[in-house]
């Protein structure tokens, strides 16, 4: 398997048009270069739109026009095993009600650790230790051990933070409404960790509702986009 091009931007959208007809990303064709350590902030007026850009960025959805490159290589030009290996280098907080964020037949802690077991050469003890360490850094004494359906939304969101920050190497963080239902004072350690990762070269896509984001000033975004009827409007 070819090693990733670490000199290339982490994520590139080249004149991308979303496959969804009604999508506001659609109107013009959208371009973006996200380098290691960059943070792009996206504001969507509709919460139902949020997973779309995340799915495009992670190669889950193919663009109807244009191309999306991750670590210098197009998602469409990779074989299935390369696609999976690349996704294991992406941490993601999944949007509430944007699709499933949890496997219902596993406990929350098992869900959090699951992707890490598929990293080559990692033992069970290492995964458990890394997970507990990350949970502590994010201000949690322990991860919820019940089924996702019996766990509060705030706890699930915080468990998603742990899951998103665990991959090694972590090239890209895709955060869909990461502060959903969490009290503002509890999000601070998460933002701290995100900034720490940016310092280590992780690029970040933060996708949110305009009225929902707190601590905007501590995020220090590289670029911001908001959706307008005619397409995405960006500022750099």
């Amino acid at each position: 398997m070819a090693s990733p091009d670490i000199t290339a931007p982490t994520l590139q959208f080249e004149d991308v048009r979303s496959p969804s007809n009604q999508d506001q990303v659609d109107a013009g064709g959208f371009s973006l270069n996200l380098n290691p350590g960059d943070l792009a902030l996206f504001f969507f007026e509709s919460k139902y739109r949020i997973p779309e850009i995340a799915n495009l960025a992670t190669g889950m959805t193919q663009a109807s026009r244009g191309d999306i490159h991750f670590m210098g290589k197009s998602w469409s030009g990779r074989n299935p095993q390369e696609v999976l290996a690349s996704r294991r280098e992406i941490g993601r907080v999944f949007a509430p009600r944007g699709g499933a964020a949890w496997l219902q037949n596993l406990d929350v802690d098992e869900n959090v650790m699951l992707p890490q077991f598929f990293q080559p050469g990692v033992t069970k003890k290492e995964v458990q230790a890394q997970t507990m360490e990350m949970a502590r850094r994010l201000g949690m004494d322990h991860l919820p051990s019940g089924r996702p359906s019996r766990t509060s939304t705030a706890e699930l969101t915080r468990a998603q933070w742990v899951r998103a920050l665990l991959p090694r190497p972590l090239r890209l963080l895709v955060l869909e409404r990461p502060g959903y239902s969490v009290p503002p004072q509890q999000i601070e350690p998460f933002i701290e960790q995100v900034n720490l990762r940016r310092g280590e070269g992780t690029a970040v896509l933060w996708i949110d509702l305009p009225n929902e984001i707190n601590h905007r000033s501590s995020l220090l975004p590289t670029c911001e986009f908001e959706t307008l009827p005619e397409g995405l409007k960006g500022s750099f």
Partner: peptide, 9 residues
Amino acid sequence: TLLEAQGID
């Protein structure tokens, strides 16, 4: 889809 998004075969 969630599994695929996390890079799990």
